[in-house]
C-alpha cells in the first residue's frame, strides 16, 4: 500500500446551472500513475482541473466538496492558488508552448517563482528539466529557437519539461497524447514510466489501451459520476459495475 497523495471528498462541480460532477470521492497514490477514463463530456477533465484549481479561471464554475493534497485542503481560503499550482503541474490536451524560445519556455516557471537565483542555476534547471522530459538531446543545439517551431510530440515534451521545471509533486495530464501521432504517443508513455519514480501523475485519457499501459489505478467516469475506481488490472479484467464493463468492451463511448 502506497501512501495517499490526493484525496477528493464528495466533490460537486457546477457550470452555472449545470452540474458537471456528482459526489466524486477518490484518492490517488503517491508516485503512481492514476488514469481517468470515460466517454467525452463525462467530467474527467473537469475533475482533473479541480486538482490545481484551473477551474477558477472560469467565472461561472463553482466547486463544492473537499480536495486534500498531503492532508491540506486546497480550497481553503488561505491557500494561495499560485503556490498550489507550483506544486501541481499540468500538461494540456493540445501542446501549448509559449511563443518564446525553448529555453524561455522552460525557464518561465523558475523565473516567476524565483526558484533560480543565478543564471547558472536557471540554466541547470532548464537542462535537467529538458533531460527529464527526454527532449534535451533533440534540442540542445537550438535552445534559443522558438518553441512553437518544434514538432507536435516535441512541443508536448517541452510542455512536460516546463511543468517539471518548478519541481512539482504532482503532474496532471489532460489527454496529453490526443493531438499526437502514435510514435510521439509512445515516447510520451515511455516518459511517464520514467517520471513516476519522482512524481505523482494523474492522466486523463480517452484511450483505454493507454490507461492500461501506463497506470496502476484507473477511475471510470460516466455522466459526471465516478462509476468505479480500482487497480487497473481489476478495472480491465473484472470490473464490478456493468457500465464499466460495457465501456471497456466498446458497447458505448
Amino acid at each position: 500500500m502506497k501512501s495517499i497523495k490526493i484525496k477528493a471528498d464528495n466533490l460537486n462541480v457546477y457550470y452555472g446551472e449545470k452540474q458537471a460532477l456528482f459526489d466524486v470521492s477518490m484518492y490517488m497514490e503517491e508516485k503512481q500513475v492514476t488514469a481517468l477514463i470515460g466517454p467525452s463530456g463525462c467530467g474527467k477533465s473537469t475533475f482533473i482541473r479541480c486538482l490545481n484549481r484551473m477551474n477558477d479561471v472560469i467565472d461561472i464554475c463553482k466547486v463544492q466538496g473537499k480536495i486534500e493534497i498531503d492532508g491540506n485542503d486546497i480550497y481553503a481560503p488561505d491557500m494561495q492558488v499560485e503556490q498550489l499550482r507550483e506544486r501541481v503541474g499540468m500538461v494540456f490536451q493540445k501542446p501549448n508552448p509559449f511563443p518564446k524560445s525553448i529555453f524561455e519556455n522552460v525557464a518561465y516557471g523558475p523565473r516567476i517563482h524565483g526558484i533560480a537565483e543565478h543564471k547558472s542555476d536557471l540554466e541547470e534547471i532548464v537542462v535537467t528539466s529538458l533531460k527529464k522530459a527526454a527532449l534535451f538531446d533533440e534540442v540542445k543545439d537550438r535552445l534559443y529557437d522558438a518553441g512553437t517551431g518544434l514538432s507536435g510530440g516535441q512541443q508536448q515534451r517541452l510542455c512536460i519539461a516546463r511543468a517539471i521545471s518548478v519541481n512539482p509533486d504532482i503532474i496532471l495530464m489532460d489527454e496529453p497524447c490526443s493531438a499526437l501521432d502514435p510514435i510521439a504517443t509512445a515516447r510520451i508513455e515511455e516518459l511517464m514510466g520514467d517520471l513516476k519514480t519522482e512524481y505523482t501523475i494523474i492522466i486523463v485519457t480517452h484511450s483505454m489501451q493507454q490507461a492500461a499501459r501506463v497506470s496502476s489505478r484507473t477511475g471510470f467516469f460516466h455522466l459526471g459520476k465516478l462509476v468505479e475506481v480500482d487497480k487497473t488490472e481489476t478495472i480491465f479484467s473484472n470490473p464490478s459495475d456493468q457500465r464499466t464493463q460495457d465501456y471497456i468492451t466498446g458497447r458505448f463511448g
Binding site: E86, H113, A163
Partner: peptide
C-alpha cells in the same frame, strides 16, 4: 489562444 493563458496559470503564474 486560451491555451496559452491556461499554460501560464497552470505554472502558478499570477
Amino acid at each position: 489562444p486560451q491555451s496559452l493563458r491556461e499554460g501560464s496559470y497552470a505554472m502558478g503564474a499570477t
